[in-house]
């Protein structure tokens, strides 16, 4: 019975509440990948998507990572995202995924000259070998 009701809610598109941007607009999150190469050089990458529309969908994923308190799941999702970046940088020895919160200044703060700041929430190091063929 519970499953049937859950199916109906999903089917009708009513499983989520209607409190968009309510009661307050939350801070946004940012994910940065630091790639380290064998010669010691480092490079920074953001999660790459092909279109701006998909880019506007990324905050849902980042909000989920932030809200998720189950450490292994958070780590697994970040590893998957790091792996997708590593696919384009297969020489990288190590990828550090740095997940943080973007703190935008208030109206008064911005008027005073405050700039957006970045507070690290968590960071993980991942290493992938070139022989790795399956996703994490």
């Amino acid at each position: 019975m519970r499953e049937t009701i859950a199916f109906y809610l999903h089917a009708a598109g009513i499983e989520a509440g209607y409190g968009y941007f309510a009661p307050n607009v939350p801070y946004s999150y940012k994910l940065v990948f630091q790639l380290t190469y064998p010669n010691g050089t480092t490079e920074y990458e953001l999660p790459s998507v092909a279109t701006t529309e998909t880019g506007r969908r990324l905050p849902t994923l980042l909000d989920f990572i932030a809200a998720n308190r189950y450490e292994p799941l958070r780590q697994l999702i970040l590893k998957m995202l790091a792996y997708s970046v590593w696919q384009h940088h297969r020489d990288a020895l190590r990828i550090r995924a740095v997940f943080g919160m973007v703190i935008t200044p208030s109206i008064a703060g911005y008027s005073r000259g405050d700039e957006p700041s970045y507070a690290v929430v968590c960071a993980y190091d991942f290493g992938f070998s070139k022989t790795e063929r399956s996703p994490p």
Binding site: Y18, G19, F21, A22, N24, V25, S28, P59, T104
Partner: peptide, 28 residues
């Protein structure tokens, strides 16, 4: 719309303009 508006009214940010400001300055 009723519940969307009502839950917004519960937050202080919609009374002082901060929520609208943050919505427009929030990346992306």
């Amino acid at each position: 719309y009723f519940f969307s508006g009502l839950t917004k009214l519960l937050g202080s940010g919609w009374w002082n303009g901060e929520s609208l400001w943050r919505a427009l300055t929030r990346p992306p």
